[in-house]
Simulated scan of single mutants.
Amino acid sequence: MSGITLTNVTKVYQEGEFSTTALENFSLNVANGEFIAIIGPSGSGKSTFLSIAGALLKATEGQVLIDDIDIATLSEKELSKVRLSKIGFILQTSNLLPYLSVLDQLLIVKKMGGSIKPADREFAKELLTEIGLGEKLHKYPHQLSGGERQRTAIARSFMNNPSIILADEPTANLDTKRAHEVVSLIAKEVKARNKAAVMVTHDERMLSYCDRVYRIEDGILTEEA
């Protein structure tokens, strides 16, 4: 089974004699082509979930499979490779590099993994054209609107053809119209490219784009009816 599966994941933060349980027996499976949302208040465990799903943080207990690979068994070097090749991140802010053009924002992802081939350049152009930025390839971040910057970040997250897309509050800095554009675009690309995607959000207006919705409170996950 491809995609991502978390089984009975618990994460406990220990500070001296005090411990805080951020996630408790957290189980979730997201298959290829599925777009799910996780909602919940601040401090509910959403960020911890994203860090564990993104191979940035190890669970205290439980299992995390990414494309059937148990990431707990991987070395730091192997985890770094998984993050680069199997996971696409979309953050609250677009995190674009100010000195790179829109096209180069995508190509730098390939450069991090080795070298840029002509096929990579074509794929980047295809992604950007698909999301409506075909005319903006050589523009810089300061020449783009907030929505265009976030769309660039979406295209960048697909650049390495990852298995999983993790979106952290992708509409946080956008007005309603732009927010709908961005989330509908993520949903469309997830379906078209058969990725497993999870969006963590406070924005309940965006949930209609998702196949399933989960709520997390005090580290406990429940599926919304």
Rank of each mutant, 00 (worst) to 15 (best):
M1T: 11
M1Q: 09
G3L: 04
T5C: 07
L6R: 02
N8A: 11
K11R: 14
E15L: 14
E15I: 11
S19C: 13
T20P: 02
A22V: 03
L23F: 02
N25R: 15
L28P: 05
N32I: 08
G33Y: 03
E34C: 13
A37M: 00
A37V: 01
G43R: 11
G43Y: 02
S44D: 07
K46R: 09
L50T: 11
A55L: 08
L56M: 15
V64G: 06
L65G: 10
D67L: 14
D67K: 07
D68G: 03
T73C: 14
E78V: 02
L91N: 14
L91G: 08
Q92D: 13
T93D: 15
S94H: 13
L103H: 06
L107S: 09
L107E: 14
I108F: 11
G113N: 13
G114M: 08
S115F: 12
I116L: 10
P118S: 15
D120Q: 12
F123L: 12
F123W: 03
K125A: 12
L127M: 15
L128Q: 09
L133Q: 14
P141W: 03
S145P: 08
E148M: 11
T152D: 06
T152G: 09
I154Q: 01
R156K: 14
M159A: 11
L166E: 02
D168A: 12
E169L: 04
E169P: 04
A179Q: 00
V183T: 04
V183D: 02
I186H: 00
A187V: 07
V190N: 04
V190Q: 01
K191F: 00
A192Y: 00
L207R: 02
D211R: 00
R215K: 12
R215I: 00
T222E: 06
E223P: 00
A225C: 12
